[in-house]
């Protein structure tokens, strides 16, 4: 771990800290209802549910909402969008899981200017305005496999602050300038951590790590096999069960494909972007009717190639953080881990 000076906060003081923050920021905390965990706005009297585990929907929607106005228009003007302006208010995302915060760094590489020089002001503004407080996982879920794709239950990627749940208190480390400022301005409810706090945190992290399935997937091998076996009929077999819905892509924290369309009424309207999915036939269909990925087989292969080959080649990253949402919620149990295993033999 870094030489950052850590601090602790008693859990009963968390609402005070969050209330302080909510005076100048919109604060989101994990909440559970009907067995579904989601990030909801913190209000007076709320307590973050730190036992709630992974949220059903990934928090990517904070930066890349399912529907977003790019701009409003009438026949004569193109106005900057309201959502772009609303993003001016700073946001604190509290208790994001390490896999999800790691996904933010992957999304940065798509929406940020390092991607061929094009800015995405909608994404970037929201991202710049947000402080990510990541909560290390003491009890990874049975479908979690972050360690197999370069992540860690106490991973710091994409996090401004890393927190560990030490039962009655949290141990916190500021990782970025933003994160350190966050801790500094909340000094009154924080205590300097003892050396033992850090040791306990380390112990929790390593036992969480050990509870995860062994890493059985080698990035380079999988990439090579995927590339070499692009035309392998195994893809047809893998696709057999797939029903061609977009659940995996919509739940995935790194999937970022979108559509742009117009909504118009009485000569006024807005241009919006919405999530889209490579699993849909319409996604690549030309106006002529020709479709470069005409069947589910090509479309499913695209999803895997994109995550485990194409992005490795283009930006040296695997676009999977091992959160396991697609494993858990695929309607037909098409398991990404099994597909990786299929392409793991040397």
């Amino acid at each position: 771990m870094s030489d950052t000076v850590g601090c602790t906060i008693e859990k009963k003081l968390l609402p005070t800290l969050l209330l302080n923050e909510s005076k100048h920021s919109r604060v989101f905390i994990p909440k559970q209802s009907d067995g579904v965990t989601e990030y909801a706005v913190f209000g007076k009297g709320d307590t973050p549910d730190l036992e709630a585990g992974q949220s059903r929907l990934s928090p990517k929607s904070f930066f890349f909402p399912q529907t977003e106005t790019l701009y409003a228009f009438d026949y004569d003007t193109i106005e900057p969008s309201a959502s772009e302006e609303a993003a001016e208010a700073p946001v604190v995302l509290f208790a994001v899981r390490p896999c999800d915060s790691a996904s933010f760094e992957l999304l940065d590489q798509v929406f940020g200017p390092e991607n061929h020089g094009y800015h995405d002001p909608y994404y970037e503004k929201k991202r710049d305005n947000t402080i990510v407080v990541t909560l290390a996982c003491n009890k990874p879920g049975s479908t979690c496999f972050c360690t197999s794709v370069g992540g860690d239950p106490a991973g710091t990627r994409g996090a401004d602050v890393l927190a560990f749940d030490l039962e009655d208190r949290l141990y916190l480390e500021g990782l970025t300038t933003k994160g350190k400022e966050f801790l500094a301005r909340n000094g009154e409810v924080l205590k300097e951590a003892a050396e033992t706090d850090r040791e306990v945190a380390n112990t929790l992290a390593s036992s969480a790590r050990e509870s995860m399935p062994a890493v059985e997937y080698d990035r380079a091998t999988v990439k090579k096999n995927l590339d070499d076996q692009f035309d392998n009929p195994i893809w047809e077999k893998i696709t057999n069960t797939c029903i061609g819905c977009g659940a995996c892509t919509y739940l995935c924290p790194t999937c970022h494909c979108f559509d742009i369309c117009d909504e118009e009424r009485h000569y006024k309207g807005r241009r919006i972007r919405t999530w889209d999915s490579c699993q849909y036939a319409q996604f690549t269909k030309h106006a002529s009717g020709h479709n470069p990925r005409p069947t589910k087989t090509e479309r499913l292969r695209q999803r895997f190639m994109h995550k485990f080959s194409y992005t490795v080649e283009s930006v040296d990253e695997v676009y999977c953080v091992g959160c396991g949402r697609c494993v858990r919620y695929c309607p037909v149990n098409l398991d990404i881990r099994e597909v990786l295993r299929e392409f793991s033999s040397t």
Partner: peptide, 12 residues
């Protein structure tokens, strides 16, 4: 309100 328009219902 819960619906995310993933079309799983339709496809199933």
């Amino acid at each position: 309100t819960k619906c995310i328009r993933c079309n799983a219902c339709r496809q199933a």
